[in-house]
C-alpha cells in the first residue's frame, strides 16, 4: 500500500449563509445571492481539489464540542436533517454521508499514543453538526467522498487557549500519522471563522449585502494580518500569535481546527492560497488552501 498523504489543508469556514446563498438543493431554504467573495473562493478551492484526486475529507468542527477527550465518528453512514440552532431560518439541510471508519479509528489510536483521551462515536442516531455539514457541502456538494469527522475538544475553553493548542497539535500529529498509514489521499478541512463577533440583528432581506460589514475595524486589521502570514508561509509565527489574535477578535480558531490542521501539515513554511475573504453577519471568514503541489519539500517536517 502506498503511503497515504495530506494533499491539501483548507481553512473552510461554515457560515450557513453560504449554503443558503448557493440555493443548495439539499437545503430547505434557497437564497438568491450574497457572500460571493467567499462562495467564489470555495468554487476556486473545489477546482484545485478536483485536480488533486482526493479520496477522503477530514473535518474538525467547533460545533461538535466534547468535554471528555477527542471524539471521532465511527459509524458507516449517517443520514438526517441538520438544522442550525442559530440560523434555522436559512439552514435546514438534508445530508447523507459515508464515513471512512478505519481511518477514524486509526486517528483515535494514534491520538492515544500522543497521550490524548479519545472516544469513538458509534450512536447511529447522532446528528452531524451544522458546521461540519456546511464545510463539507462547500468543498464537495456532491457528497461523493467518504469523510472523517473529529470533535472539537473543549480544552481551549475549559482550560486555556494554550492548553487547547497543545492538545490540537498532538491531534494534528496523530492525524498525519494515521493518514500516512491509511494509504489515502486526504484533504483536511479546518471549519473555523476568523474574527468572530456577530451582529445580533440581521437585515429584513437576509442576502442584502448593503448591510454586510465587519463588526469592527480592528477585527478586519487583525484578519488581514493573519491572512498575510498564511500567504507568506509563516505558520509557526501565526501559531505563536494565535492566543493574542483570539483575545483581540474572539476568533473562532480558538476552538482548535486551524491549529490541528497546521500541525497535521507539519507547520508549513510554504505560502497558502487565499481563495476569498468576506464577512458574514459581522464575522471575518476566509477560504484558504495549503496545497501539496507547492509543498515540494518545503515543509519543515
Amino acid at each position: 500500500m502506498a503511503r497515504g498523504k495530506i494533499v491539501a489543508g483548507i481553512l473552510a469556514p461554515h457560515p450557513p449563509h453560504l449554503v443558503y446563498a448557493e440555493a443548495a438543493p439539499q437545503n430547505e431554504v434557497h437564497g438568491s445571492c450574497g457572500w460571493e467573495s467567499l462562495r467564489w473562493g470555495y468554487a476556486a478551492c473545489r477546482e484545485r481539489l478536483r485536480a488533486l484526486q482526493a479520496e477522503v475529507l477530514l473535518v474538525h468542527s467547533p460545533h461538535w464540542q466534547t468535554i471528555v477527550g477527542h471524539h471521532v465518528i465511527a459509524v458507516d453512514t449517517l443520514k438526517g436533517l441538520a438544522v442550525d440552532p442559530i440560523f434555522p431560518h436559512i439552514f435546514r439541510y438534508h445530508y447523507e454521508v459515508n464515513f471512512e471508519v478505519a481511518l477514524a479509528k486509526k486517528i483515535a489510536e494514534e491520538a492515544r499514543v500522543e497521550g490524548l483521551t479519545t472516544a469513538l462515536m458509534t450512536n447511529p442516531d447522532f446528528c452531524l453538526d451544522y458546521g461540519s455539514v456546511t464545510s463539507l457541502h462547500m468543498v464537495n456538494p456532491q457528497w461523493d467522498l467518504p469523510v472523517v469527522v473529529l470533535s472539537a475538544n473543549n480544552s481551549p475553553y475549559y482550560f486555556s487557549t494554550t492548553k487547547g493548542m497543545e492538545e490540537m497539535t498532538k491531534l494534528g500529529v496523530a492525524t498525519r500519522r494515521a493518514i500516512e498509514q491509511s494509504g489515502k489521499r486526504c484533504v483536511l478541512l479546518a471549519s473555523n471563522s476568523l474574527s468572530h463577533r456577530h451582529f445580533t440583528e440581521e437585515p429584513a432581506v437576509i442576502e442584502d449585502m448593503s448591510a454586510e460589514r465587519i463588526y469592527q475595524h480592528s477585527h478586519y486589521q487583525w484578519d488581514m494580518k493573519v491572512l498575510a502570514m498564511m500567504r507568506a508561509g509563516r505558520a509557526q509565527e501565526l501559531l505563536e500569535l494565535l492566543p493574542h489574535y483570539i483575545e483581540e477578535t474572539a476568533a473562532e480558531v480558538k476552538a482548535g481546527a486551524l491549529t490541528w490542521m497546521l500541525a497535521a501539515l507539519g507547520v508549513p513554511t510554504y505560502g497558502a492560497e487565499v481563495h476569498g475573504y468576506g464577512t458574514v453577519i459581522g464575522t471575518g471568514n476566509a477560504v484558504v488552501g495549503w496545497y501539496e503541489d507547492v509543498e515540494q519539500g518545503a515543509s519543515n517536517v
Binding site: 461538535w64 464540542q65 466534547t66 468535554i67 471528555v68 471524539h71 472516544a119 462515536m121 458509534t122 450512536n123 442516531d125 447522532f126 446528528c127 453538526d129 470533535s151
Partner: peptide, 11 residues
C-alpha cells in the same frame, strides 16, 4: 436527540 459529548449514554 443524541448529546454531542455524552452520546454513549444513548438516544
Amino acid at each position: 436527540q443524541v448529546d454531542g459529548n455524552w452520546h454513549h449514554l444513548g438516544t
